[in-house]
Design a protein around this nucleic acid. Structure first.
Lengths: 114, 114
DNA sequence: CTGTAATACAACCGTATGGTTGTATGCACG
DNA sequence: CGTGCATACAACCATACGGTTGTATTACAG
């Protein structure tokens, strides 16, 4: 059985501009928490909390390098979130199909194939 | 100039299981707020507030039908959110490319094409 | 035009969130 | 092995969130 992703945590973590920016930065920058913090108009501790929230949500990981801890975004987690939205869009497409089917039926449908 | 989507609102709205379920249901069900509410173990007013949050985020719209107001999810808004995650994944792919480029360079690269 | 079903809104409560400052830990470097 | 940088954590504050109940608005049905 598959484990349910923590969607609440993921989307909640993404619901803040600073955290989205951290995710974006951590995709390719190799920055420690302090370097990250220097980009934002708030205290070091505040940024640290944001990183912690992203970490709990599984969107980033921290990796010790020297005396720093480098923040790395976890692309797989991003994909998990994206796939949920994909599924909603698929449901939407399915809805269209069902509407079409209904039209065909009430239309004296020849065939309902595919 | 293009308008910045309200990502805070969108992801915040998606950060709750009840609201995600409302979004899912409203994709193809034609339910009023009261019918929606009947699916969840909470008061009508609570569900109404969830719908309002989704509405403010642009993820659903309400449409009067008779004396009810039917909840409809706005797939375009879902796509907007999904595309942001897509862009993050693209950045990630770009990162891979840049790493490869770097390898090629330090490798005595013949050419760095495409 | 009145009654009532469906929706909206306001006030309230407990808890979580986003920020602050201050203090404690961990680890590299001299 | 001690000094100091980078990180972590605790306490605190204001405000937002998720839920409740109660009251007001709306508009179809009779």
């Amino acid at each position: 059985m598959q484990v349910m992703p923590n969607y609440d945590g993921m989307f909640g973590a993404l619901a803040d501009a600073t955290r989205r920016d951290i995710v974006r930065r951590a995709i390719d920058a190799q920055e420690g928490v302090a370097e990250m913090a220097s980009h934002y108009p708030m205290s070091f501790a505040a940024v640290q909390k944001h990183v912690a929230i992203l970490e709990r949500a599984g969107l980033v990981t921290k990796q010790r390098i020297g005396r720093r801890k480098v923040v790395c975004t976890n692309v797989e987690a991003l994909r998990v979130a994206r796939r949920l939205l994909d599924r909603y869009e698929e449901l939407w497409l399915g809805r269209i199909d069902r509407m079409t089917d209904l039209l065909n039926e009430t239309n004296g449908a020849k065939e309902t194939r595919k």
